[in-house]
Amino acid sequence: MYIQIEPESDIPIYSQVSTQVMEGIIRGELAAGEVLPSVRGLASDLGVNMHTINKSYHDLEAKGVITIVPKSGAVISVAPLKGASKEQTDLLSEKLRPTVVEAMVSGMNDDEIHALVDSIMRNVREMK
């Protein structure tokens, strides 16, 4: 599977990499047990700083998406998708809030916001 990053984007590169890995898992392109490239390998392939990829892998590990196994590397977790915990839901709500607020204040109604979220989810699942 491909990782695509936009260096000039406002979204930090580490977060772009994390999101792409998670999208790969959702689409089934990355299966449980698969090993991600080494930090140095992915950083050299993309021509970005090793700290950036390191940060991204630790971010993914904190989210429970991958496990960093000494010697093997970053392994996609075996059963990460058993539903979000209470704390995780709270965290997501906190992160989503500014975006939802921005949408509401711009005058979008509930249906439009729901439709937007639906379209993003469709896009994530279908993108190749």
Binding site: M1, Y2, I3, Q4, I5, E6, P7, E8, G24, L30, L36, P37, G41, L42, D45, L46, G47, V48
Partner: peptide, 12 residues
């Protein structure tokens, strides 16, 4: 143009 970099995770 949106300038992007790509990498293939399985290339190695």
């Amino acid at each position: 143009k949106k300038q992007v970099k790509i990498s293939d995770l399985n290339i190695r």
